[in-house]
Computed example of a mutant assay.
Amino acid sequence: MIITIIAGARPNFMKIAPIIEAIQKKQSEGVNIHYQLVHTGQHYDKNLSASFFEDLNIPLPDLNLNVKSGTQAEQTAAIMIGFEKVLADNATDLVMVVGDVTSTMACTIVAKKAGIRVAHIEAGIRSGDLSMPEEINRIVTDSLTDYFFTTTPQASKTLEHLGASTDHIFFVGNVMIDTLRKHEGRFKQHELWQRLQLEPQKYIVMTLHRPSNVDEESQLTALITQLTALAKNYPIIFPVHPRTKKLLEGLSLNFENLHYVAPLGYLEFNYLVKHAFAVLTDSGGITEETTVMHVPCITLRNSTERPETCTLGTNVLVGNNSDKITNAFEKLVSGDWPKGTIPELWDGQAAERIINHLVEIYKL
Rank of each mutant, 00 (worst) to 15 (best):
Y147S: 08
R138M: 02
F171A: 02
I139K: 11
R181Y: 09
V175W: 02
V205D: 07
Y147P: 08
E216F: 14
P200F: 09
D178N: 03
T207E: 09
S127W: 02
P153M: 08
E184G: 05
S127C: 11
K182L: 11
S127G: 11
L159F: 05
T207A: 07
L196H: 06
I169K: 01
G185C: 06
F187M: 13
L159V: 12
F171Q: 03
L159R: 07
T158A: 07
K182M: 04
Q201N: 14
L162I: 00
I177D: 01
S131R: 15
Y203G: 03
S165M: 06
K182V: 05
T179F: 04
E191K: 10
K182G: 07
P153W: 06
V214M: 12
L192P: 04
T207S: 12
P133H: 12
Q189Y: 07
I169Y: 05
S212L: 07
Q197F: 00
D146F: 01
D178F: 11
N174P: 08
I125G: 00
V214K: 04
E134A: 09
L180M: 14
P211N: 09
T150Q: 11
H209E: 10
G163R: 05
R186C: 05
T150L: 03
G163D: 12
L198N: 04
L196T: 11
S212H: 10
F149T: 09
Y147W: 15
I177Q: 04
L180Y: 14
M206D: 00
G163H: 04
L159P: 08
K182S: 03
G124L: 00
M206Q: 02
E191I: 06
K202A: 14
M176E: 05
L162S: 13
D142F: 04
Q189S: 08
L180A: 14
H190V: 08
F148V: 08
Q194H: 14
N174W: 09
K157R: 14
V140L: 03
S212T: 11
Q189P: 06
P211F: 13
D215H: 10
G185H: 02
H161M: 12
G173H: 05
E216I: 13
Q201H: 13
H183S: 11
T166S: 15
A164S: 12
H190G: 13
Q154D: 14
D178R: 03
S143A: 13
F148R: 01
L196Q: 06
D167A: 10
H209G: 08
P200C: 05
M206R: 05
L159W: 05
V140P: 02
K182Q: 12
E216R: 14
